[in-house]
Structures are given as structure tokens and as C-alpha cells.
């Protein structure tokens, strides 16, 4: 394999993992836009998506397509219940309190997952086979990687359509810009918040499900992916959708190139270092608008 083929491999690998980070980042963004908080339970949505696929496809032998949507719906429901229950009833709306509440809920979900599925990693069958595909640039990928790219692209299109062209999507964007104004024009802010958690649950589940055949899944797979997805969201500009994709891609490719060209031991350190560097230069992320402070 000559050098240009190596680079091509690094980049393709980076893009595929970057796509996952992008989806997770979008999940973080949706909740941030609706509520202003970071939902650390996003990590559990990812794990639960993967584990749910495992139960449905491997244990109950339900076809992959149906399992996909059932899992998405289930995790979405869990997200909604999380909002409707603990988050809604929290006495304080302080952002830091709610963030740590999501951390507490995340721990509860993770502990429950551990009880149900145990601690082992499990494999999930690939959506369409495992024979490597050889690309013209000299890199190889698995069919599952094509699914990752395809589904990520689809998700992007669907979300874009949702937020631009549907009433509900526009209402959500309105809530993100200014909650009071949105309420004044008749948007039910409570429903928007609920929807944001449900959507974010669905996105987390999708991320977990499409990566599971490649990486195996377990009750805590989502932690590192969630953390890096959050980093991707921040890198791209927290709350900005194009930023989520950009951040995800950059983080994924950087990690891969770092491992391949520099040092695999310091790959994560390099990625975070670059993140810090970007933040110091542009404190609101690459495409962020800046969090305005109410005086």
C-alpha cells in the first residue's frame, strides 16, 4: 500500500467515525437549542440503541429493518419519559443542576442496562453483509460503512427538511431563538422541549445502531462516543447543525490521521488538543454564534 492509499484509508475511516460523531452531535444540539442544557444521557441513548438492536435482531430474530425502527421508537420514548418525568419535575431550572440531573439519570439508565444485558460486549449482524468493498482510491471499507454514510446523509436531509419546511420544525427553531417570544406567538414550549428529547433519543439510537455491527456494543459503548460527539458539537459551534457535521467530520478525520501519521498513543490527546486550540482561537466553535448573556 503506497502512501496515498494509506492516506485515503485514514480519511475514509475518519469520515465514517466522523459521521457517527456528527449524528450524536446533532442530538446534543437539538436539546441544547430547545432547553439550553447538555443532555449527558445522550451517551445512554447510543448504548441503548445498540443493545436494543441486539435483543431484537439476535435474540428475538426480528428482521433488521423492523428492529431498526422499533429501537428508534423505544429509545425515543425513553428520552421523552426522561423529560416528562425527572426533568420536568426538577424544582430548579438552573442549567448546571439540570446537566447534572442528566448525569444522574444517565447513571441510572446505565446501571439498568447492566442489569438487563450484563457487562459483555455483543455483536450485531451487519445490515447487508461483511465482505470488504475495494474503493478506487485504494482504501477498503465494509458495506456497513456505506450504511453509516447513507443513513447519516438521510438523517441530515430529513432534519433539514423538518426544520425548514414543517410547522413543527419551525416552531422548534423559534423556541431555540427566543422561548418567550415563541410562547407569545402560540408555540407550546413544553411540547417543543418534549419533542427535542424524543428526537435526540432517536438520533442517539440511530448512531448506536449503525456503528454496532462494526464496533460491537455493550451497556456502556455510548460513553466515549457521546463524549466525542459532544466535543464535535462544541468544535463546530454548539447548537449549529452545519457545525455538528463539520465538527464530527473534523474530529473523526483528525483522530484517524493522528493515529496513522503521528502517534497512535497520543491520538485522543491530539484530537482534544486541537479542540482546545480551536476554542481558544474562536471561543464559540467554528460556526457558533456565541452565547449571548442576558444582562
Amino acid at each position: 500500500m503506497d502512501f496515498s492509499q494509506q492516506i485515503a484509508q485514514y480519511i475514509i475511516t475518519g469520515l465514517s467515525i466522523g459521521a457517527i460523531y456528527a449524528i450524536v452531535a446533532m442530538g446534543f444540539n437539538i436539546i441544547h437549542n430547545a432547553t439550553g442544557i447538555v443532555n449527558f444521557a445522550q451517551c445512554e441513548f447510543i448504548s441503548l440503541g445498540g443493545m436494543s438492536m441486539y435483543t431484537l435482531v439476535v435474540l428475538l430474530k426480528i428482521p433488521i429493518l423492523i428492529s431498526f425502527f422499533i429501537s428508534m421508537a423505544t429509545v425515543s420514548l425513553i428520552g421523552a419519559l426522561m423529560e416528562r418525568g425527572p426533568i420536568r419535575y426538577a424544582r430548579s431550572k438552573e442549567i448546571i443542576i439540570l446537566i447534572f440531573l442528566t448525569i444522574g439519570l444517565s447513571g441510572t439508565l446505565r446501571g439498568t442496562a447492566q442489569q438487563i444485558w450484563g457487562t459483555d460486549n455483543v455483536g450485531v449482524p451487519a445490515f447487508s453483509g461483511e465482505d470488504p468493498i475495494h474503493l478506487p482510491v485504494g482504501a477498503t471499507i465494509l458495506p456497513q460503512h456505506m450504511w453509516v454514510f447513507g443513513i447519516t446523509f438521510l438523517v441530515m436531509l430529513v432534519l433539514r427538511h423538518f426544520f425548514r419546511n414543517t410547522m413543527l420544525g419551525k416552531a422548534m427553531r423559534a423556541t431555540a431563538v427566543n422561548r418567550q417570544a415563541a410562547a407569545l406567538v402560540g408555540v407550546s414550549v413544553d411540547h417543543m422541549v418534549l419533542l427535542s428529547f424524543a428526537l435526540s433519543g432517536a438520533l442517539g439510537a440511530v448512531a448506536g445502531m449503525i456503528i454496532a455491527p462494526i464496533s460491537t456494543t455493550s451497556y456502556d459503548t455510548g460513553i466515549m462516543l457521546g463524549l466525542k460527539g459532544f466535543a464535535a458539537a462544541i468544535l463546530g459551534g454548539y447548537g449549529n447543525f452545519a457545525g455538528a457535521i463539520l465538527g464530527g467530520v473534523i474530529l473523526g478525520v483528525l483522530e484517524s490521521l493522528g493515529a496513522g501519521l503521528l502517534s497512535s498513543q497520543y491520538k485522543d490527546a491530539t484530537a482534544f488538543l486541537v479542540l482546545l486550540f480551536v476554542l481558544f482561537l474562536k471561543p464559540t466553535g467554528i460556526m457558533g454564534y456565541g452565547e449571548s448573556e442576558r444582562v
Binding site: Y89, R91, L101, G104, G107, G111, Q115
Partner: peptide, 21 residues
């Protein structure tokens, strides 16, 4: 025993919900 992770998460969540100060 093995439920202590869940118990801790629940306990923490309850405090944050009802005693946020």
C-alpha cells in the same frame, strides 16, 4: 450489591430534583 449503580443514580437524581440548592 449489583444494583448499587442504579441506586446511586436514583439517589443523585432525587437530590437534584428535589433539593437543587
Amino acid at each position: 450489591k449489583q444494583y448499587h449503580i442504579i441506586a446511586y443514580g436514583v439517589f443523585l437524581s432525587l437530590i437534584l430534583i428535589f433539593l437543587p440548592e
